[in-house]
Design a protein around this nucleic acid. Structure first.
Length: 568
RNA sequence: UGGGGUGUAGCCAAGCGGUAAGGCAACGGGUUUUGGUCCCGUCAUCCGAGGGUUCGAAUCCUUCCACCCCAGCCA
């Protein structure tokens, strides 16, 4: 089973305020009942779980109302963007299970038309070329509580503006020497409307248009018009763009665009123990704090995929967190819950011992091997069965043995009888130590009448242990992941101390794990439940005969909780 | 101190004048050849605070408080 071949589990998605607006528009016959959205990433980084929220919202709305959702790259700033990012973004959106059909666009596709729109604004006296430097513009913008000052170039004649703007395009001027600005109101209480910059000169090559353009439009100018050009009806973005909506509307108003898209804003996702800002993620990658964008500790889509997350679990998560305008910090435990819920249903069960301890069954014949039949998933017969070899020397989990059994302990301890899953009952008869005094091996006896792991006499054996036959086991590397950040909310920290909050124990590598032999046939990306241990995904770093597994998440562990409570 | 937003349980989040959904977490209990899953139960006399309207307010009005966003030629 490959995780991206699985059937989608689509439950009825709950409503939210944006869906309510769309539904009301459809009922009222707005846009002739048409619904069109778009997911507009800037290709300057990899997608993360926060983007997944937006993707699910936008594509989900289109699907629910029989509309369409475009994938549009907001590639208006070539100095930050790269084709590597556009490829990863396309892959991630597809992997999440969404299809943009023929709706793949780039803001850069519209550069010619955007230039024409800008020229119209100039002709209408609604935009002007400003010769001030960036510093001067900043100084004259005023502050939150005091008005700005008009630029000395604000009232240039239309003809001169047209000429200058044309020459900006022709590449006659240096970077930063001039900009095109909207003529709105330098004392507007909304800072966004204090004559915002529409175009700036950047004589740098663009990943799609090459050397063609020395000027590039700003987000506020390009975005609303790109939406209009594509006939988007509902333009959904995050809260920090709320102030920009006034400019979004201003541009469309001045250009007389009708019918026009409307912008709606929702609160971006925040998740505990991680970071969801591109700036911070890119730092983690660049400074080598993680192995790359797809490091399984990263909240990126590619990281989650490599970790063992399924598209379904991520979609379910996005549905459960809801969509609102309130600041939020969602507990990572919810994401993990969604993964377990999905994987419990579909991951084949398998035996893997993370910290092997030899167990020798003294009364079991030296040279005998037998096979036991295991259900791949006891709750789903359709997943089939398999045979697993058993012999005199096994590996069990070191943590399943205690010399001093605490209260309620029903695993292995001197004199205690336990069940080896699907095999036999064994009783610990002796403990062998190495020179340093460490427990090196357990000596046990087994009861032949308990074949299959069951006895007719009604004997109470509470503990059931996973195991693997030493002679048949495959040695594997297992990577255990913890939270990227120790602090629940590292975003509270400033840029400097942010790195200090990284969890030093976010990755533990166990080189000597022992897994059942069938696992050497697994393919990268396949996910298994190691019984009693958790869910593990085969990593691409695996080589033939040397599997590497990533622990996606643990199983719920009631015993660990009991022990934790005792500590308190 | 200007403008734009948001406040419902530890965390998300419904609720749209008729007496506080649901999920996660937590905590009890049952089933169990995974201390998993599953099942059952507990968990807001109260909706940021005060005042008002109303037979009735989380929902309407009002005052206040707290938090977030905006002064890029980033998006």
């Amino acid at each position: 089973m490959t995780k991206d071949q699985r059937p989608a589990a689509t439950a009825a998605a709950p409503s939210n305020f944006i869906k309510d607006i769309v539904r009301a528009d459809v009922r009222a016959g707005a846009y002739n009942g048409r619904v069109q959205t778009r997911f507009p990433p800037e290709p300057n980084g990899y997608l993360h779980i926060g983007h997944a929220k937006s993707i699910c919202l936008n594509f989900g709305l289109a699907a629910e109302f029989g509309g369409r959702c475009n994938l549009r790259f907001d590639d208006t700033n070539p100095v930050k963007e790269d084709v590597e990012y556009v490829e990863s973004i396309k892959q991630d959106v597809r992997w999440l299970g969404f299809d943009w059909g023929d709706g793949l666009f780039y803001a850069s596709d519209y550069f010619e038309r955007l230039y024409a729109y800008a020229s119209r604004l100039v002709e209408a006296g609604k935009a002007y070329v400003d010769d001030q430097s960036a510093d001067e513009i900043r100084e004259n913008r005023g502050t939150l509580t005091s008005p700005g000052k008009d630029s000395p170039w604000r009232n240039r004649p239309v003809e001169e503006n047209l000429d200058l703007f044309g020459r900006m395009r022709a590449g006659e001027f240096e970077d930063g020497s001039r900009v095109l600005r909207a003529k709105i109101d330098m004392s507007h209480p909304n800072m966004v409307l204090r004559d915002p910059t529409l175009y700036r000169i950047k004589r740098v090559p663009h990943h799609r248009t090459g050397q063609k353009w020395p000027i590039y439009p700003m987000y506020d100018f390009a975005h609303c018009l790109s939406d209009a050009i594509e006939a988007v009806t509902h333009s959904i973005c995050t809260l920090e763009f709320e102030n920009n909506r006034a400019l979004y509307d201003w541009v469309l108003d001045e250009l007389g665009i009708e019918p026009r898209p409307r912008q709606y804003e929702f609160a971006r996702l925040n998740l505990t123990h991680t970071a969801l800002s591109k700036r911070k993620l890119i730092r983690l990658v660049r400074e080598g704090r993680v192995a790359g964008w797809d490091d399984p500790r990263m909240p990126t889509i590619s990281g989650l995929r490599r970790r063992g997350y399924t598209p379904e679990s991520i979609r379910t998560f996005c549905e459960r967190i809801g969509v609102s305008k309130a600041e939020n910090l969602v507990d990572m435990a919810l994401l993990e819950h969604c993964l377990r819920e999905d994987l419990n249903r579909r991951a084949p069960r398998v035996m893997g011992v993370l910290d092997p301890l030899r167990l020798v069954i003294e009364n079991y014949p030296e040279d005998q091997t037998e096979e036991f039949e295991f259900a791949n998933n006891p709750e789903d017969e359709a997943m089939g069965r398999r045979m697993v070899p058993f012999s005199r020397v096994l590996y069990v989990e070191r943590d399943d043995f205690r010399e001093q059994a605490p209260g309620k302990w029903f695993r292995l301890a001197p004199g205690r009888e336990v069940r080896l899953r699907y095999a036999y009952y064994v009783t610990c008869t002796d403990v062998v130590r190495d020179a340093s005094g460490e427990v090196a091996e357990l000596r046990c006896s087994f009861d032949p009448k308990t074949r299959g792991g069951w006895s007719k006499d009604g004997r109470k054996v509470k503990g059931t242990l996973h195991w693997v036959s030493a002679a048949h086991a495959v040695r594997a590397e297992v990577r255990l992941y913890g939270n990227l950040f120790s602090a629940a909310d590292p975003s509270g920290a400033d840029e400097a101390e942010f790195m200090e909050l990284l969890n030093p124990d976010s990755l533990r590598v166990l080189p000597g794990c022992m897994v059942e032999p069938g696992l050497c046939l697994a393919k990268p990306g396949e996910i298994f439940q190691f019984e009693r241990n958790g869910y593990f995904c085969l990593d691409p770093d695996s080589t033939p005969g040397r599997p590497v597994f990533n622990r996606a998440t643990t199983l719920r562990d009631t015993w660990a909780r009991i022990e934790r409570q005792k500590d308190k």
